[in-house]
Amino acid sequence: MKVRLLFNLILTLLILNVLVASTEIPKLHQRVTDFTNTLTYQEWKMLEKILKEFEDSTSVQIAVLIIRSLERESIEEFAYKVFSENKIGQAGKNNGVLLVIARDDRKMKIEVGYGLEGVLTDAIASRIIRNEIIPHFREDNYFAGLVNGIDAIMRATAGEYRADNGNGTTTIFPYFLFFLILLSVIGIPIMAGRRRRIIGGGQSVYYSGWSFGGWHGYLGGGFRSSGWSGGGGFSGGGGATGSW
């Protein structure tokens, strides 16, 4: 019992530490960084996988950052700083995209690197936010919003996104659904075992646990060693914002 109390205390301190850190400009070590524990482990892992595969095949870097709340800055300022601090996108190509979500402020921004401004224009970025992401965010389904939004961004960077017909999302979604099922079949038993063994506590504690674990790379998985970082890209402040 004592051990458990101590463990919870340490855990709380670590979480607090992460919260404090999130008010500064975070250094991204993963493609998907969630300070809010909004995503489950499976969801996070899936997004990482999708983005990794996309980066491997196209060299376009897409990163996601979810924070609780902005301090004094506007979302535009914050997104620009995070983008330039982490240099998302390949050097020379500047083909990076950053999604910043300030969950409790209900604001988001898609920050687009110089090299993608031609295909992922402000208008397209705005349409993606309006039509693909926000409808899901309004229903508190952040994962679905992100999957749809990332999918649309990936198609836009390939010059394929047509926001006006809006049917692209339905054709691609089963693919993600398939992954979700696959991951839950394989992932949940493993994670459940891990949870019992390590914490043996409630769901929320567990989720907090993986979040800082994911961030600092304590918790295993194939992503810890990936050591992802931006490739040296620049942004000129292009993209779009939205709120819900």
Partner: peptide
Amino acid sequence: RDLQAQLEGTENRIAV
């Protein structure tokens, strides 16, 4: 809405 997004994006680029 597209025009508005472009304008907002441009204002942000100007600031940057």
